[in-house]
Amino acid sequence: MAPQGKPAVPASINACLVRALRNSDVFVSRLALLFSTPSSTDSTLSLLAYSMILASHTLDKLLASRMELVASQIASRASKSLQPGETLVASLPVGEVLGARWARAADASERMKTARAKISDFRAFARLWGLLGLYGWAKGHWKSYPGARKPAAAEGEGEEEEGSKVNKNKYDPTANTTIRTIVWMQISACVAFQALENVGYLAQHGIIKLEPATTGKLFKWSSRGWCTHLTLELVRLWKTSQLTKQKRKDLAYSAAWEQEDDAWWKKLTTTSAWAPVALNFSVAPSYMFLNELGLGLCGGTASAVSVRELWKKSAPAV
């Protein structure tokens, strides 16, 4: 018989506790990796911000629908006691009309709007030194041309190597003149985007003195630079797919193709999802076509694809 006193903890409970602690440790470790680099931090915060846009939009719609229903009921009852030509005007807090639960929902929506504004401001601040990363991109692209700036080989060997190099790099995107030109145009568009956003951000916070109208124009033209980059990215992806089809036409199937195709589709998905967001902020406010639902869906989709890929890469080795 078991000894009297404190009952023994079943082994199954101990195993569950150990498993829960281990899973928690893995989750927190992977989450820490998501915030370990500027790019992964930006993607994670972007997903959080656009998720908040969707959540607050949903709550606002539910609240508005509920308030409209209650208002129609109040108006229906009050109309019986009103004289011809009289109008009832009432302003009541959400809590008094709909109850404490709906008041908490309204408060949660406002808090999410405040949080997403802070996240947006932090992301813009973290991009202030983004021009340094663009310099690295341009430098890497300049050095990526196969065989460029390398010493010439011996006369006989040089011709043979040159011929094999042409055949080898015929379908290489880094050696394709069209794609290389597109990338240079993308770098230029991103430099314009980042420089204009930096000035607009500093002016918005009073560090640089500019008129509010001028600051708004800076952000608009900054978004146009981003939109140009995304448009060029779609063209680059299309050209890359054409080269890939030609390269694979006379080759045997390789398992590496699946990884290449998967990366291509992910890039296409994120670019296509960001494009409406960039275009929306590139036009005057009166011409903006995305509401909060559209912004949340487009931005959330693009961010989710990026974060999902980062999350997969942070998985511990088996």
Score class of each variant (00 low, 15 high):
272 S>Y: 02
32 A>T: 13
17 L>F: 12
231 T>M: 09
272 S>G: 03
185 M>N: 06
309 E>T: 14
298 C>A: 14
213 A>L: 12
314 S>N: 07
283 V>N: 06
32 A>F: 10
16 C>K: 14
281 F>E: 08
104 R>I: 02
178 T>L: 04
224 R>W: 00
233 E>R: 11
165 K>M: 12
100 A>G: 02
153 A>M: 08
62 L>Q: 06
49 A>Y: 04
36 S>Q: 13
174 T>Y: 02
1 M>I: 05
196 L>W: 02
178 T>Q: 01
17 L>R: 14
272 S>T: 13
91 S>R: 14
223 S>F: 13
118 K>F: 04
60 D>I: 05
144 S>D: 14
72 S>H: 07
96 E>P: 01
112 M>N: 08
145 Y>D: 01
173 P>V: 10
305 V>R: 09
200 G>C: 10
46 S>M: 12
94 V>T: 15
228 T>I: 00
314 S>I: 07
266 K>P: 00
123 R>F: 06
287 Y>L: 14
287 Y>I: 01
150 K>H: 04
243 L>R: 10
39 S>A: 15
40 S>L: 09
228 T>F: 00
57 H>Q: 13
241 S>Q: 11
310 L>Q: 15
102 W>Y: 15
233 E>S: 14
164 S>D: 14
65 S>C: 05
162 E>M: 11
279 L>F: 08
285 P>V: 09
280 N>D: 15
307 V>I: 08
126 A>R: 13
308 R>F: 01
299 G>D: 08
205 H>I: 00
188 S>Y: 10
310 L>E: 12
171 Y>R: 07
94 V>P: 06
126 A>L: 11
46 S>Y: 02
271 T>L: 05
129 W>A: 13
221 W>H: 15
153 A>L: 15
54 L>I: 07
60 D>T: 13
200 G>A: 15
39 S>M: 12
261 D>I: 14
315 A>D: 05
288 M>N: 04
159 E>W: 09
181 T>C: 03
175 A>N: 02
158 G>T: 00
127 R>A: 14
103 A>M: 03
8 A>P: 01
205 H>A: 00
114 T>V: 08
72 S>T: 07
171 Y>I: 03
173 P>R: 10
295 L>W: 09
192 A>M: 12
181 T>V: 11
230 L>V: 05
206 G>L: 08
103 A>T: 09
243 L>W: 08
175 A>P: 00
75 A>S: 13
58 T>Q: 10
86 E>F: 08
190 C>D: 07
229 H>A: 13
77 R>G: 02
214 T>I: 09
197 E>V: 03
184 W>C: 01
63 L>C: 06
109 S>E: 02
19 R>M: 07
237 L>V: 00
34 L>Q: 04
61 K>V: 12
298 C>R: 02
33 L>T: 10
256 A>L: 13
189 A>I: 10
125 F>D: 03
127 R>Y: 06
